[in-house]
Design a protein around this nucleic acid. Structure first.
Lengths: 232, 232
DNA sequence: TCGACGCAAGGACATATGTCCTAACTCGAT
DNA sequence: ATCGAGTTAGGACATATGTCCTTGCGTCGA
């Protein structure tokens, strides 16, 4: 991890993500920029939290590990995403582990500074409220969705979510390099079972496989499978 | 539903739940007390939200209904619980239906008033932050728990949660009238399956059945089954 | 070049869970 | 009392999902 306090760059990112007014003046001077390499961990489940991160560039993976050691991928996130907000408000140890999937950049704010300068600054409180509310909403939907639908439906939904980003590219359907183990963990099933369902999708002509890549061939069909639910 | 603006009673409930400082002065005058009968709905999924409720007495059931009509019980709640907070911040229609399980009393606050007098009042914002953060935390745990554990473990955990309230009563283990259909929905399984697992628990001597009542006979054994996880 | 390793893919089998159906039982309204 | 709606209990069967194990393929360092 590389840390800097370059004021210009900080301002640049704050502006770019419309965060200029979120932090009160005295806090602005105490922000820092932190860069994480691909694969590096930004924070680790179970450890005490001490800093709020605002992801401004890159992509991260959030996952949790059960006492028995099983891992569960909770989400993949891109800017603007906040890390450590829930822990700050709830005064808890870190709930999850966060890892940079690509080189990532985050604005770091010390809890002490936040406590000292932020808790009476309505714009910051409102911002946190919106962020956490959104997280709750997403989590709530995901949970109901998971409880009510079999893996087949969840996988269809997942594929649609992951493979829609490159609209505008030559191939109609859209494809993506899916790390299957992560995908399995994300939808909460075993790697084996995910493979089984994937095979079934292929047999039905919904998707194709090509060396680690998954390509959606029949978007409409997948949508039907997903019962028109899409994660997020 | 019966509504009143009895100032004394309002103050009574605010004090009792340590909410005296949450609402700014001008808002205090605009609060109202609402009473709901057993079985009455406090709000209905999909409808536009217009009021924040602070449950101060009674017990409620929160559930959601999928497009296909399947119901899923999300939680049972007692004071202090907030209803409509997420919808207020996220400006969304109601995510869930809330029903009074017993006669309940709530303080109602109009969104318009909240907007006009509350959004710059730090104590209120902080209060909402804590409430929503707690909801997120709970939901997050529940989701991971559900995804990672089979029904057997979830049911053990559920029984422990439900049957621990009457510590101090004569029977050692603790028992409770469990509405089985709700329980099944809560842990996200079918009624049939819940029954199957319950039967298994009985065969193993962990619980007993007595006309609608479930009695925990071997708390330690159940705890082992639940792998020491308890909902909440 | 070779072998160790990690990962993709899938076979075989056991278990978990869902769906449909039937029977008995409770309780309030007639 | 009697009927019916809601609730409890469980049989039979199909499907969904997990676990364990095997095979093949590519990468990378010795």
């Amino acid at each position: 991890m590389m840390e800097s306090r370059h004021a210009e760059r900080l301002r640049h990112y704050l502006t770019r993500h419309r965060l200029e007014h979120v932090f009160p003046e005295p806090l602005l001077a105490r922000l820092s920029l932190m860069q994480f390499e691909r694969g590096e961990r930004i924070c680790e489940q179970g450890e005490p939290a001490g800093r709020l991160y605002v992801l401004v560039e890159g992509k991260i993976k959030v996952f949790t590990t059960s006492p028995e050691g099983r891992a569960l991928v909770l989400s993949f996130r891109e800017p603007v995403e906040i890390i450590g907000d829930v822990e700050f408000i709830g005064r808890r140890d870190l709930m999850n582990t966060v890892e940079a999937v690509s080189r990532s950049l985050a604005i770091g704010v010390d809890y002490r500074d936040l406590e000292a300068y932020g808790m009476n600054h309505a714009p910051l409180l409102q911002f946190l409220l919106e962020v956490i509310t959104h997280k709750f909403y997403t989590k709530s939907n995901a949970m109901s969705f998971n409880l009510m639908h079999p893996v087949e439906v969840r996988l269809a939904s997942y594929l649609l979510t992951v493979c829609q980003e490159e609209t505008g590219l030559p191939h109609q359907g859209g494809s993506a390099a899916v790390h299957l183990a992560d995908a399995a963990s994300y939808i909460g099933t075993s790697y084996r079972h995910l493979n089984r369902v994937l095979r079934q999708f292929i047999d039905e002509g919904l998707v194709e496989r090509a060396g680690g890549q998954i390509r959606v061939s029949d978007r409409a069909g997948l949508l039907a499978k997903a019962e028109h639910n899409i994660y997020e």
